[in-house]
Amino acid sequence: MKKGKMVLTLFLTFLKIGAFTFGGGYAMIALLEEEFVGKRKWLTHDEFLDIIAIGESTPGPIAINSATFIGYKQAGFFGSLCSTLGVVIPSVIIITVISLFFDRFMQFRYVQYAFEGIRVCVVYLIFTAGLRMFKGLKKKPLTYVIFSAVAVLFITFYILGIGFSSIICIFACGSVGLCVYAYKSIKKPERGNE
């Protein structure tokens, strides 16, 4: 396929994925696989899993990570740029249109009633998403220590009304991971106790 045409195909494919995937990045993964592994055969199943693994380990929305990566592999810089734009453009347009009417929409009494229920659902959805991710974590002491420490600190700070910085927290967790790794590497000859 010629490069220009490939870039266009990438753009349109990701535009479609951006416009029709509900439920965020993880729902997108199934669609990406169908499109690139199943239909177009641009990637093998293993390559695809590698991309998802990298996407999950790097910051940012998984949809953007995989669009950039797949785009680059297929057509270099412009491929990655157009794939990323493709996946983002529908969101920006749809949300902008909704934003134009949102404040007026929220003034209706019935809408306010509905949103009282929706907020409860949002809390439920975030909580269960967290639980699902918790089940996917590696079952080892470090995981439980970091998880409990962060959860206790976060909730205590909130109740006491003290500002919490998630950014510092994330880097602190990463540093703990590094320290444990360094400590284990030094201790290794003694067959360290975990």
């Binding site: 909580f127 967290g130 590696k138 962060v150 990463g174 590094l178």
Partner: peptide, 29 residues
């Protein structure tokens, strides 16, 4: 290996942030 070790620390932290966010939103709501 270093990147992996960093992420092993970050992952449970992020999950804790998500669950705690839900809990504190619930406390407020």
């Amino acid at each position: 290996k270093g990147v992996n070790a960093f992420l092993e620390g970050v992952r449970p932290g992020v999950v804790a942030l998500i669950i705690s966010t839900a809990v504190t939103m619930g406390l407020s709501l």
